[in-house]
Design a protein around this nucleic acid. Structure first.
Ligand code: SF4
Ligand code: SF4
Lengths: 134, 134
DNA sequence: ACCTTCAAGACTATTTTAGTCTTTTTATAA
DNA sequence: TTATAAAAAGACTAAAATAGTCTTGAAGGT
């Protein structure tokens, strides 16, 4: 139950690598992939998602690559994980309409809500700055 | 990320139904399936797992069916979920050998350990007795 | 004997995961 | 202005997990 996918693991490793570089240093996806042990073209997709969200900045052409889009201290583990895995939802009934006929007086529902809140808090409290320290 | 499967949801609904019956009353799988809105033969599989673990008792032949195997207060949500979904593992590196080359000084690893502990605690603290109350 | 009920295992369809590959766009440099 | 370098975008694929079904067998009751 509740397993991080490889995509999520690669995402975390990749962004930590970036956070460990000199601020402003541009890294190639090939370099990040090697450092994080991820398949290059798969990681490229992951970093595209990051770029769209502004977590990383991307530059094309010669001398291009990726840098962090914001300060390491402002990027949380929750943000990184959710960027590639989607929102933290331990059970369907937690998102959007929460479509469940028995939803009204279900005693289990609030338990999942608690799980969601706790997990989110834990991941939110960890920043890339902390994770990048060696 | 971290979504309960239908199997897990059916499992919970099914056992709560059982917990709501008069102690000692035997329920047919067809009855439980209808009450919980689960496909009967799928739920049958789920209850087989429960029976092996002693969470429920099964009886064959005429007048057979299922009852809880222990008191509702002694069956936790964690136990029910783990019975069908396996252990609560937010990341591969948490179980068994925790096969990860970078495992030694990984800063992320303890975060997943915390998630695991917290989620386990939340689910462990909820019993079928509580969930069965109307 | 016959019927009822769960047990066990094989089987299948759908969805998700975990990628790859090709083409296009943007930027630099000779 | 052409070549080269890099990410962006999108189509594609293989493998695994999920969500079941179906058939047969075993245990128990009448
Ligand atoms: S029964 Fe309760 S826990 Fe299950 S999906 Fe519905 S609201 Fe959520
Ligand atoms: S890098 Fe860290 S978090 Fe990721 S699998 Fe290895 S030990 Fe676990």
């Amino acid at each position: 139950m509740m397993e991080l996918t490889r995509k999520g693991e690669y995402a975390i490793r990749g962004i930590i690598y970036l956070a460990q570089q000199q601020p402003g240093k541009v890294s190639l996806i090939s370099e990040i992939a090697e450092a994080s042990g991820a398949p290059q073209s798969f990681l490229a997709k992951i970093f595209q998602s990051f770029a769209k969200l502004g977590i990383v900045s991307s530059f094309r052409g010669t001398g291009g690559g990726f840098t962090l889009g914001r300060s390491p201290a402002s990027i949380t583990l929750r943000e990184v994980v959710e960027a590639v895995e989607g929102p933290i939802i331990p059970n369907r009934c937690l998102l959007d309409g929460g479509v469940c006929d028995r939803g009204k007086d279900c005693k289990v529902h609030p338990v999942w809500r608690t799980v969601q809140t706790q997990v989110t808090q834990i991941l939110e409290s960890v920043t890339m700055e902390e994770l990048a320290r060696k």
